[in-house]
């Protein structure tokens, strides 16, 4: 089981370039999970413990409102890291993450990973660097969307 788990973790972009020891630490906190369409991977306001490395299927990052229902902020797909709030206090989810279709993912115990990162700063830095790549890409994409590029431009 743990060997195929290692293969699964290795095949995810977040593990690209990580050494065997680091992958083993990651595997120690990981398990293979599946969600049906519409199931929540992450619930806004809940304690941010488990996050996900998506393997297949797409997930909507959303927030709900009484008048407008679920508002999708963005959708992410295979290769994405879903859930970042486990990294920083108060370790609480800010948005919902909902499966748009059947989803396969590797669930990582964030608390477990934090403990390992604290005791092995090199591993901690490697993990943080990996997550930062996605953080940055998603932040940049969000900034560009803020420009409302396809909107009307007749008012200067």
């Amino acid at each position: 089981m743990s060997e195929s788990m290692a293969d699964l973790v290795r095949s995810h972009p977040v593990a690209a370039g990580l050494g065997d020891d680091a992958v083993a630490l990651l595997v120690g906190c990981a398990k293979n999970v599946a969600f049906n369409a519409d199931e929540l991977l992450i619930s806004e306001g809940a304690s941010a413990d488990t996050f996900y490395l998506l393997r297949r299927g797409h997930v909507a990052i959303e927030v709900h409102s009484p008048e407008r229902g679920a508002l999708v902020i963005e959708t992410v797909g295979p290769g994405a890291v879903v859930g970042w709030s486990w990294l920083v206090p108060p370790y609480r989810w800010t948005f919902d993450a909902r499966a748009l279709e059947p989803v396969g993912a590797i669930a990582i115990d964030g608390a477990c990973l934090r403990t390992k990162a604290l005791s092995d700063p090199a591993f901690g830095f490697a993990m943080l660097s990996k997550v930062s790549v996605e953080l940055l890409e998603r932040l940049q994409a969000t900034r560009l969307r803020l420009l409302d590029l396809y909107g009307r431009t007749d008012v200067q």
Partner: peptide, 23 residues
């Protein structure tokens, strides 16, 4: 297709067009 802003009926992608490249 990806849109900048979804709608209640929209079941497709929400995000920058470049996020479609990977898939």
């Amino acid at each position: 297709v990806s849109v900048d802003r979804g709608s209640p009926q929209w079941r497709g992608r929400v995000g920058l067009v470049t996020t479609l490249l990977a898939d």
